[in-house]
Design a protein around this nucleic acid. Sequence first.
DNA 1: CCCTGATTCGC
DNA 2: GCGAATCAGG
Length: 192
Amino acid sequence: MSWTDERVEILKKMWGEGQSASQIAKELGGVTRNAVIGKVHRLGLSNRAGSGGAKADAKPKAEAKPKPAPKPKAEPKAKPMPEMKTEPAVPPRPAGATNRKAIIPAGQPLPPQPSANEISPEALAKVNEVEKKAKKLSLMELTERTCKWPVGDPATEHFWFCGLPVQSGKPYCEAHVGVAFQPMSSRRDRRR
DNA sequence: CCCTGATTCGC
DNA sequence: GCGAATCAGG
């Protein structure tokens, strides 16, 4: 594949949108993210500026600068959410497998299932979808980078761990991180 | 380990 | 000009 005008256009557009090089490469097809990055540089648009404009000069071209490229480090994920099924879905189950004596399945600190907390409906919906794609790993199959979000009731067969790739150093995949680490919401409900 | 972009350098 | 290999982070 070569860099035709169209392809360059797409490249520019996506890069401008903050898409990652790998995403762009995937979109274009026939190229690797390296190719994309290389092209980006050759085109001289290594910097994803654009918003706010205000910036015309600032090109002292300091050779002695080990880091001439400021890293924006921000990816606005503007994903158009297509209408998803009206599925109330199955919110995270507290999985209270209290075997007679309420024994907590030791092991890892299970996620504080937010039960009926106020979680973004979107987040919940996302989790739902994710559960469909879950790899359904068993406890022993979990690794450092598999989502450890439990699904189902440990006392039944309907139990597995999400198992999708975790986001970062977090224990869960992106979707589950979303519902797991929710800032404590209305808390002052302390009507004692 | 996964990912990101940045740079280099033979082609 | 191109992009794989490599580098440098997160």
